[in-house]
Design a protein around this nucleic acid. Structure first.
Lengths: 133, 133
DNA sequence: CTCTGTGCAAAGCGTTTGCAAACGA
DNA sequence: TCGTTTGCAAACGCTTTGCACAGAG
């Protein structure tokens, strides 16, 4: 269990118990959607409001403390901001996991082809995980 | 202006005037979101309902006649199903365009690293397009 | 002490549903 | 003709807002 007080402050977010718990849930679950987060939060704060969850998620997104990952055919999940990486999504168990892939060659090709200045890359690979095969 | 009657039938969709118009709008605009589509449709059918748009979009998605592209920080856009490709999104003008990138190496690396059976790849590159620079 | 965050209730917005009439094949 | 689609209105579910009180710094 990590203490996220300083991490929050670095992103200009006051360290309230609710925010620390959200940070903790994201650290533990890696990728989590709003519903699952709300369920977890209810165990620690029996009268927490969904509005509080949404307000904090939105602030944390604005301050880049967390990131949204849009999943094909499913709800978005959220994760603590870390170094750039891609995602794997199992279409059977819906687990999302990180994967570190070398995309530089692809990005170079994209720049060359398109006259586009690429600043962000979102790669999601869907399929079936080892467990579900 | 293409006649989409047969294309629709191939996907088990009756060729109604509304569906032909949706097909046409997608062909012309390449990538279009619900709002823009509704605006266009209203010009041809002054009493078309948003419910009709949604029902058709959902059917067309189920039957793989069209595909959804989830865009970071923005509404999803829809496109006619065509051969696999990636997407570029301009963060200034919001234009979405197709790009054909060689991803086999990356996919091989993913398979090797993850023990995952990858069946679908969604790559979205965000940045600034030539015009907006 | 001051400003920000929380919880609640209500509002807002995009999407879906049920139904009767219209339409495609 | 028969089954499907359309348009409308209502319902739904997720997200946001406004406000009074509580809490962080």
């Amino acid at each position: 269990m990590i203490n996220f007080t300083d991490e929050l402050r670095v992103h200009n977010l006051k360290a309230t118990p609710q925010r620390l718990a959200i940070s903790d849930a994201m650290f533990t679950h890696r990728h989590i959607n709003i519903d699952a987060l709300y369920t977890i939060m209810l165990k620690k704060f029996n009268s927490i409001s969904l509005a509080t969850i949404y307000k904090n998620i939105n602030l944390m997104l604005q301050n880049s403390f967390i990131q949204e990952v849009k999943i094909p055919n499913n709800k978005s999940v959220y994760e603590l901001t870390k170094k750039v990486h891609s995602h794997l999504v199992c279409q059977t168990c819906n687990e999302v996991s990180d994967i570190d892939l070398e995309l530089q060659t692809v990005l170079d090709e994209a720049q060359a082809q398109s006259d586009f200045l690429v600043s962000k890359t979102d790669l999601v690979l869907s399929g079936i995980c080892k467990k579900c095969r």
